[in-house]
Design a protein around this nucleic acid. Structure first.
Lengths: 148, 148
DNA sequence: GCTACTATGTTCGTATGCGCATGAACCGCG
DNA sequence: CGCGGTTCATGCGCATACGAACATAGTAGC
């Protein structure tokens, strides 16, 4: 029964939601987050984990700079930083050179935890990629990076 | 406990957040959403658009079934459906066979809008994939579907 | 026909995620 | 020095996203 009218380009095919990249990316991200939450310790969310690792890499960093590094809006990183601080994993110090900034750094507990969580992060990454072969994983990573 | 040290695989290398799939998927999804919002009409969010298209495909569908079709939690689809109804794009009817359900369907305005938006959806998909060549796009789609 | 299980829609709480606005502080240039 | 533009942190509003808990409504097994 007349499925053709849906078609603007004359020929074109059907429009299948499940074939749209945006939708697929959303679902893949959903699955990745679910796997992450399933295995991560300390009730850390993916974003909290990312922030923790980045602060570890920087040693000491302002909130905005951290946000840019992990691709978070300033308003968003604000909340993430707050929750990490509430968990006593990071602390805020003052920047003597810029009174607007608060310098974030890991607490001893945060530093210790970060080291313990990294191997866990590797396992999670492996599990997310498990449906793909080695070669496919490499190819996928390469293409995904182009879409960032 | 004692997950050995930071390194379960023995050698392993550095741990770069930017190489983790979860993080890359999140960023790619972020970019896709941004491109979508930039071009979509009627202030429709990606999820609202997905729901609209799916209801169009179904003709008439319950809220939970719709949610499963577009990969949304019942609690989440509730909100999306509410906002689409507030925009007068969909309407809720009663299911005579199951008094728990409310059957969703497009309003005339919603149906008309859906037809107009589909070509827009195609353009958006194309723009999101623009950084990739034709071959890469096909390969990426294929791999991405395996991770859903 | 009754009971146990399941399904549906809803509300609550928490966590992103972003646009927009604001106040404070910094910086470059004249 | 001072002024305009920029940066930083924060707040508010809206929209996902999902777990948990609920009341109501079907359904399967006995």
């Amino acid at each position: 029964m007349a499925v053709k009218t849906a078609n603007e380009s004359g020929i074109a095919g059907t429009y299948v939601l499940e074939d749209q990249i945006g939708h697929l990316l959303r679902r893949a991200h959903q699955r990745a987050s679910a796997i992450f939450q399933e295995h991560m310790a300390e009730d850390l969310t993916p974003q909290q984990y990312a922030a923790l690792i980045k602060i570890r890499d920087f040693g000491s960093v302002s909130q905005n700079r951290l946000g840019r590094a992990v691709a978070m809006d300033p308003a968003t990183s604000q909340g993430v930083v707050q929750r990490l601080a509430a968990k006593r994993l990071i602390q805020r110090g003052d920047d003597p050179k810029d009174r607007r900034r608060s310098l974030l750094s890991l607490t001893p507990r945060g530093a210790e935890l970060a080291e313990m969580l990294i191997p866990l992060g590797r396992k999670i990454t492996a599990e997310i990629l498990e449906p793909l072969s080695e070669d496919e994983q490499a190819a996928f990573l390469k293409l995904l990076k182009k879409l960032t």
